[in-house]
């Protein structure tokens, strides 16, 4: 609780100092919105429904892309860990493509699919798939062989060994891979929304950010950035904290 108050007081102080500096004109107002400007924009944009619609559009795209990445990446990662042939082929491809910043997929996506949802989905998928795949493979490969041997002597084999031993044993690695994949998906989507302008099927937060720049509305730009941070934080907490709590109690790993 004490740490909560420390953080709260810190941010309150930052906001107050910021507001003070802008109001006194020490920071140039057209380039530097004050916290109250941002707050006003957020209230107005919420009331008009614009922000909620945009967040909804963005979240739909994000979850679609991310969950397809998980659904494809986790099993492929498992297979990759299991079969040497896949490691020497698919594994090398994944390793190469993972180093490619996700926004680099945007030109290809635009040429292939055009300015539409498919392009958007493709960029998110390419952005997160390979890191999930590789983290799963790494996780399985770092399971201590003694677990496998112990399970074998108790009569576990084949599929049972995989779901009852290899998967839970690699959970700490797999979850951190899922987190990393999530972070990549979020970044890819923002890149895609700013770069692949899609208006017909809904304006996402990235597009609002883009428009904010076009009309030079710095308060809007900063306000949308705040929303993007908040969504990122919330999703991270909601999706991963159950796993992290479980690992903390079972493995005894430290929790920040």
């Amino acid at each position: 609780m004490k740490r909560f108050w420390t953080s709260s007081l810190f941010f309150l102080a930052v906001i107050l100092v910021w507001e003070f500096l802008v109001r006194r004109g020490i920071w140039d107002s057209p380039l530097m919105p004050s916290p109250s400007d941002i707050g006003l924009y957020l209230i107005q944009a919420f009331q008009s429904g614009e922000l909620i619609d945009a967040s909804w559009v963005t979240c739909k795209r994000l979850f679609l892309g991310y969950f397809v990445s998980l659904a494809v990446g986790l099993p492929l990662g498992l297979l990759n860990a299991r079969f040497r042939f896949l490691q020497d082929t698919l594994g090398v491809v994944a390793l190469g493509l993972q180093t490619l910043p996700s926004v680099c997929w945007a030109p290809v996506a635009l040429i292939t699919f055009g300015q539409n949802e498919v392009a958007m989905f493709f960029i998110v998928l390419m952005g997160s798939l390979f890191s999930i795949l590789l983290a799963t493979t790494d996780g399985i490969q770092s399971v201590p062989p003694i677990y496998y041997r112990a399970a074998r002597t108790m009569g576990s084999d084949g599929f049972h060994t995989w779901y009852a031993v290899m998967l839970p044993a690699s959970l700490p690695f797999v979850v951190s891979g899922m987190k990393q994949g999530w972070a990549f998906a979020w970044r890819s989507l923002m890149g895609a929304e700013i770069y692949v302008i899609v208006q017909k099927t809904g304006a996402g937060l990235g597009l609002l950010l883009h428009y904010g720049r076009e009309v030079h509305d710095i308060a809007a730009v900063a306000g949308i950035m705040v929303i993007i941070v908040v969504i990122g934080l919330l999703a991270d907490k909601i999706m991963f904290s159950p796993f992290e709590r479980f690992m903390h109690t079972r493995w005894g790993t430290s929790r920040q």
Binding site: I146, Y147, R149, P168, A169, L171, W251, G252
Partner: peptide, 8 residues
């Protein structure tokens, strides 16, 4: 080593 499973 005990080879106990930490997730259980």
């Amino acid at each position: 080593e005990s080879a106990l499973f930490p997730w259980l």
